[in-house]
């Protein structure tokens, strides 16, 4: 498999008057061609800032202060604005959580799709044809009339579809989806997830999916990284993560979901609250909330270590984290690591 995007030791910090908020603190991962890679974590875990860093969209006073982001072997961080513009919205597209605030309310949908063709020398008629094709692709009925409408005339699910159509207009190699289904109802969420899965297959693009919802990860991703306090704490393929999680945080997240429990079993919440990123605890950032923490965890920060070549975990006591209950038991015949295509 070819590497499409490689993030190496990315550090995005927000430098304020009195403090430095380390929103992303040494994140490394690789996205291969034609795969869906998930970044999962709670609010403030740095997942959104990671994806904003990739597109050079970090807002001030935030800044990428270290690391490399290699897109097709070119470093995005070092690119000039002009170079970046050629990639952003063309080779890498993004869809956001709330389509109402990220679409332009005073432009017709048609115009907003046409903007994506600005750098091509297509004729108007070609643009029109292509737009209709795109809207059909994302499942908007009667696209000829709908593209003459404004965003407020679209429902939530349709807006998200329109946004996906705009993102796809430039035939991106990588689609970044930042919480694409969070604002939608379950039935619509289901439709959008299936649409993205299907588009990935048809167009052969990669997707970087950012979400807080483990179920969305289970339904969409090939590989996944779990983030906590600006760091990746566990990274592996989806099947391994959900069958044999090894980081105490991953396990705690899974166990705190009501789906995993019978009606009379008590939920096991993670006690405490996520840490303040400006004032991280010493040692492992998760130790104040971890059931397995020992003295070592309070003083020294664990490294992301290879458990297997495809499974990395950031924990001092991997011997203690064996036997966590996942959401399913892998079928031994199928094997855990090779994904759904086997």
């Amino acid at each position: 498999m070819n590497k499409l995007l490689e993030v190496k030791d990315l550090q995005t910090h927000f430098i304020m008057k009195n403090e430095v908020v380390k929103a992303v603190d040494g994140v490394s991962f690789t996205i291969y061609e034609k795969e869906t890679f998930g970044l999962v974590g709670e609010s403030g875990s740095g997942k959104s800032q990671t994806c904003r860093s990739i597109l050079g969209l970090v807002k001030k006073p935030g800044k990428v202060v270290g690391g490399e982001i290699l897109y097709k072997k070119q470093d995005v961080v070092k690119m000039s604005k002009d170079q970046l513009r050629k990639i952003r919205g063309h080779e890498i597209s993004i869809i956001f959580q709330e389509p109402m605030t990220s679409l332009n309310p005073v432009l017709k949908i048609r115009k907003q799709i046409f903007e994506a063709f600005d750098r091509t020398d297509m004729t108007k008629e070609e643009k029109r044809k292509k737009s209709i094709e795109l809207l059909k692709l994302v499942g908007i009925p009667s696209p000829e009339t709908r593209m003459e409408e404004y965003t407020h005339q679209f429902s939530g699910g349709m807006r998200q579809r329109a946004m996906i159509a705009i993102a796809l207009a430039s035939e991106p190699n990588l689609l970044i989806a930042d919480e694409p289904t969070t604002a939608l109802d379950v039935t619509i969420q289901d439709q959008i997830m299936q649409l993205l899965n299907q588009l990935k297959e048809e167009l052969g693009m990669s997707i970087l999916l950012i979400t807080h919802d483990l179920a969305v990860v289970a339904q969409m991703c090939d590989r996944v990284a779990v983030m906590y306090a600006g760091m990746i704490v566990e990274m592996t393929d989806t099947f391994t993560l959900f069958s044999t999680p090894r980081h105490p945080y991953t396990n705690a997240l899974i166990q705190s979901l009501p789906n995993q429990k019978g009606a009379n079993e008590r939920l096991e919440p993670i006690h405490g609250a996520p840490p303040n990123l400006a004032d991280l605890p010493m040692g492992c950032p998760f130790h104040p909330r971890c059931n397995f923490a020992e003295e070592l965890c309070r003083t020294s920060r664990p490294e992301l270590t290879d458990l297997t070549p495809t499974h990395q975990v950031r924990c001092h006591f991997l011997n203690k984290t064996v036997g966590f209950k996942g959401t399913f038991t892998p079928d031994t015949k199928q094997g855990g690591c090779d994904g759904e295509n086997s």
């Binding site: 939530g156 699910g157 289901d190 179920a215 289970a218 339904q219 899974i254 959401t327 399913f328 079928d331």
Partner: peptide
């Protein structure tokens, strides 16, 4: 329509179409 946490249980079938 509620997504399952089991990655081996991925749906292909669309159960409900359209919107409210």
């Amino acid at each position: 329509a509620a997504p399952s946490l089991d990655p081996t249980d991925r749906k292909r079938e669309q159960i409900i179409e359209g919107e409210i």
